[in-house]
């Protein structure tokens, strides 16, 4: 069902008269999922907004030449994950902070949220996620919050399903341990 409507959107986008309307529909369809994936990765709303905007601008620029070798959904997610990981990489290069320092910085950003409540399990969970390495964090968010099948995740991150499953299980255990200790 999703692929059929993506197909329609793609056809409409290639029609100059319907291009903007089709793109607006496409953004409305994917924006929240992409936003929450990136928001949990980078924490700040402003940074998330920049990364999401860059993602969709790249979609806009590349959609006409999209060859449909993969599903549109997978292609958009791949752009989003690449943009997100590049953004985090740039941040690391700018600050020269170590991985644990950077994770700590993001945990502080979580605590600075006006709605933060250290007693609530969901906030402990957000803090625990920030302790994970970037790619493992990405795998955990895609599976736990976005309920993405391993098969799809494998196409997206170009990693075997077995490796992704192991990474997710390891991440879940680490997070559980963090929550039990805090």
């Amino acid at each position: 069902m999703t692929s059929t409507s993506d197909q329609q959107l793609l056809q409409e986008f290639r029609n100059p008269i319907m291009k903007e309307a089709a793109f607006t529909m496409l953004v409305k369809k994917y924006q929240e999922r992409i936003y929450w994936l990136i928001r949990r990765m980078v924490v700040s709303h402003e940074d998330t907004n920049d990364v999401v905007q860059n993602t969709f601008i790249r979609v806009w620029n590349g959609l006409e030449k999209f060859r449909e070798d993969s599903q549109l959904y997978t292609w958009i997610y791949r752009i989003a994950t690449n943009e997100c990981l590049s953004f985090l990489e740039q941040q690391k290069r700018k600050s020269l902070a170590s991985l644990s320092e950077k994770n700590q910085e993001r945990a502080e950003q979580v605590k600075a949220d006006p709605h933060f409540d250290a007693q609530k399990l969901e906030w402990k969970l957000e803090l625990a996620i920030q302790q994970l390495p970037e790619r493992q964090r990405m795998v955990f968010i895609l599976r736990y919050y976005q309920e993405m099948p391993y098969e799809q995740m494998s196409k997206l991150l170009e990693t075997s399903e077995g490796a992704l499953k192991a990474s997710y299980h390891h991440a879940a255990k680490k997070i559980e341990q963090y929550i039990l200790n805090h």
């Binding site: 953004v27 999401v52 806009w60 969970l125």
Partner: peptide, 21 residues
């Protein structure tokens, strides 16, 4: 969900994006 999003963000985002593109 824990984090908050500014009011009306998702309603305005597609239009701002089209303008930026």
């Amino acid at each position: 969900s824990t984090f908050q999003v500014p009011t009306g963000y998702f309603e305005q985002f597609p239009h701002k994006l089209i303008a930026a593109a």
